[in-house]
Design a protein around this nucleic acid. Structure first.
Length: 383
RNA sequence: GUGAGCGUAGCUCAGGUGGUUAGAGCAUCAGGUUGUGGCCCUGAGGGUCGUGGGUUCAAGUCCCAUCGCUCACC
């Protein structure tokens, strides 16, 4: 059983601070998990990820690792931790999101999903059982069940059918989890995923089904797929209320800094999102006072540091003008420096949230923070 | 010097026999990106069509001159 202790809750909010204990050490929640789909967080090496950014846990992906390098190589390496030289916890997504995002390349069936590899077109069939087996080979500390992430919009009839499918699969995931053992000498845990699209009654059914089956933690899936932000907040608020108090809650794929803070306020503990890394590679930097588009011409001769309130490696050493130059010139270092900054921003935003929850002043802190991070940065010197 | 070819957006080029407001790719500029391929998507700015004449209702397109570049041959 995964150990999870809620240490503190903000008085005026559902926000909570906790500690999660895995075979690769503890994770302090709320936590942001950088996305490392293919056994690497793009553009950032493991040492920087750990020591400079203070990442506590990374997310990787079953579907991608299964296709390449494949489970045989991962087992020969002694699991993903040793393969990628990462000694802290790893969570793996199951491939459920690929069911959603690779619509042209897959066929959904009652017992699983048939995929065509996006790499070589080869055919593969994922079942709940197979996905658990692959995650045993990967050796992730937290495994995710195979689910179907519904699109938006999604009509009620389809959402109901899909939620039923996810529940059926959840049973099989759990059974396979019981029937298999870890390969590398430490315990692995399994999270269920609550679906139901934007329909509260379906979320209710989904949550009840999954809690009934019993998991080490529970995720909210199927959000941040294009629905209006208020609907997402509403669904998060509704769904967290259905989730056990004593288990970690994970909102999959979210999101912008303000989305994460709002979700923490509604009782979520864990987050992952491609935004800090993908946007970094597109020259968008998150700062304490808003988003900077680093390609903008106004930074051509701006030799100030990127975010004066940031203590990251990039901000300590390089100017806006230099980073812009690197992006315009198409230099690899631009991707690295920007990724380091954005991940540091995200990871430390959640660490700061945690401190303020423990102090009992989360709500006010959150409001101020959101105002700051969503404001547009203006170059006040010119007009 | 002679002959041929070419001059259209910052760059590389499209623009049958003359006919709406001269286009594309890249670059530039500005947005977007939510369980990630650096991809991708959206929008904007930018041209006295080398220059000057001519023919015509109408010229990037046809004619003449001129300037520049490239190639070939003396």
């Amino acid at each position: 059983m995964l150990k999870f202790n809620v240490l503190g809750k903000a008085d005026d909010s559902k926000a909570r601070a906790g500690i999660l204990e895995t075979g690769h050490g503890i994770v302090q929640t709320p936590v942001f998990m950088p996305v490392g789909t293919q056994g690497t967080v793009k553009a950032v090496n493991q040492q920087y990820l750990s020591e400079i950014i203070s990442t506590e846990i990374v997310l990787s992906n079953t579907y991608h690792l299964y296709l390449r390098p494949g489970t045989e190589i991962l087992e020969q390496a002694g699991g993903l931790h040793r393969f990628m030289n990462w000694t802290k916890p790893i969570l793996t997504d199951s491939g459920g999101y690929q069911v959603f995002s690779l619509t042209d390349l897959r066929k959904l069936k009652l017992d699983g999903v048939e995929f065509r590899s996006h790499i070589d077109g080869s055919k593969h069939f994922f079942t709940p059982e197979k996905v658990i087996k692959i995650q045993r080979s990967i050796g992730s500390d937290i495994m995710m069940v195979l689910d179907e992430c519904t699109p938006y919009p999604c009509d009620y009839k389809y959402a109901k059918k899909s939620t039923r499918l996810t529940s059926d699969w959840a049973v099989q995931n759990r059974q396979s989890f019981e029937n298999t053992v870890p390969l590398y000498g430490y315990e692995q845990f399994l999270f269920g995923i609550i679906q139901g699209s934007v329909y509260k009654d379906l979320r209710e059914i989904s949550a009840a089904d999954l809690v009934q089956i019993g998991f080490d933690g529970y995720a909210i899936g199927g959000l941040a797929v294009g629905e209006p932000i208020e609907i997402m907040y509403d669904m998060v608020e509704f769904t967290t209320a259905l989730m056990p108090e004593d288990k970690p809650r994970y909102l999959m794929g979210v999101g912008k800094p303000e989305n994460i803070l709002e979700a923490i306020d509604r009782g979520v503990d864990m987050f992952d999102c491609v935004m800090p890394t993908r946007n970094a590679r597109n020259a968008q930097l998150f700062t304490s006072s808003g988003v900077l588009s680093m390609r903008n011409a106004k930074y051509k001769n701006d030799f100030e540091i990127i975010d004066s309130k940031c203590g990251c490696y990039t901000c300590k050493n390089y100017s806006r003008a230099y980073l812009r130059h690197l992006f315009i010139a198409g230099e690899i270092l631009a991707l690295e420096l920007a990724s380091i900054h954005n991940l540091y921003f995200y990871v430390h935003l959640l660490k700061e949230a945690r401190e303020n929850i423990l102090k009992g002043i989360f709500k006010n802190w959150k409001e101020e923070k959101i105002n700051k991070v969503t404001q547009l940065v203006k170059n006040e010197s010119e007009e």
